[in-house]
Design a protein around this nucleic acid. Structure first.
Lengths: 208, 208
DNA sequence: ACTAGTAACTTACCAGCGGTAGGTTACCGT
DNA sequence: ACGGTAACCTACCGCTGGTAAGTTACTAGT
């Protein structure tokens, strides 16, 4: 049988792990670029250079694929922020370093970032999965706050943690619209709000 | 021709405005309950008691329907918070009243609320629409802050506003998981964080 | 070097969804 | 009584997510 590689190019077979990473890369890019709903599985498969059923073998469903993308990105983010916080120092320094790490991650992985911030709540079945990761994020934050505010009830600390995370996410989105703002600057603004507080901000210096 | 009303019940014809409101009510409930992706237009039409093309005549597309739900809810929310802030008083009072109004709205319209917070990210066009409304939200917040912090550059005020909005949204989601937290309590926590600031929080009283 | 096994990959299909064209029915003004 | 029009329906289409069943290429054992 004659092979015509120019029409049907030789598909290089890959190991499970490599293929999976490649699929996630493609999905991440295209979800971020055009949105989950606007991209078909067929199209993703074509971009990867495979046929659709392969995606389903690896991820089970379209939701599963999105979930894979989100999980990977969240994992990397968690690693980065935790490392930044675990250096130690005063609570203020830790908080600030955490903020900076968070925004730097957004800069470096900015495609993954968009997916992470914009798509997660979509998937109903993924809600629990996401919830777990969030709880980790929140736990870390609560731990940090507990060291600094030992007298506060845990409920209050949870509320602070949740609010801080929300502020971070929104700030990251704002930064995406204002790319000239550096991670350090963004962190300064957040420190002004969450650390110094609006009350004392008009008398003290704060960020420029 | 013989009419059998028990099989095909008499559909009460309604005026444009009434039908539209009814459609939005149904869509809001079912989107919140099961998620945008898990509900078909056919099903919504059936719940309304009409056939599918009617939905398309009114809203153009499924996205359009979601957009309608979101727009209505956002409009109501904006109205409520603006009214709460426009009463005047010190910046601190205004901010606190704004928070409370925000969380009270979440309690009163809690189905609409879930749609509002969770679904926009899914649909691209909806996300853009939302962005506009958010900008209004942000504008209002910047105005409030500008009165209190006249010396800050506008860029910083924008950053604060954005962060505060993010904190609110996240806090609302947290409250959905902890229903025993009252709107006033949630507002107190947010005031602790954004007004008093974490730095001064361990020495001053703050919320219980 | 030949075969057997298996893991990677494909073609070909389906049900159900969003969306639409074109016809039908009930209400209103005259 | 009778158009006219606005509300409404039936019947269809193309495409998408998802799957069953078969094919191809790499690998290990002899």
């Amino acid at each position: 049988m004659i092979r015509n590689d120019s029409v049907k190019p030789r598909r290089t077979r890959m190991s499970r792990a490599d293929r999976e990473r490649q699929m996630l890369d493609v999905a991440e890019e295209v979800f971020a670029e055009r949105g989950y709903g606007a991209v078909s599985m067929e199209e993703i498969a074509e971009l990867v250079g495979l046929s659709k059923p392969m995606l389903y073998e690896y991820f089970g469903s379209k939701e599963g694929l999105l979930l894979g993308v989100i999980r990977r990105a969240r994992g990397e983010l968690r690693e980065v922020t935790e490392r930044a916080v675990e250096v130690g120092g005063t609570p203020e320094e830790m908080l600030r370093r955490g903020y900076i790490a968070y925004f730097r991650f957004g800069e470096a992985h900015h495609r993954a970032w968009l997916v992470l911030l914009q798509e997660p709540v979509l998937v109903r079945s993924a809600a629990e999965e996401i919830e777990g990761i969030r709880r980790q994020q929140s736990e870390m934050m609560v731990g940090l706050l507990a060291a600094h505010l030992p007298d506060r009830p845990r409920r209050a600390l949870e509320a602070y943690a949740e609010s801080v995370i929300g502020a971070c996410e929104r700030m990251a989105l704002w930064r995406a619209r204002n790319p000239e703002v550096t991670p350090e600057e963004a962190a300064d603004h957040l420190m002004d709000l969450t650390w110094t507080g609006l009350a004392t901000l008009n008398s003290s210096g704060g960020s420029a």
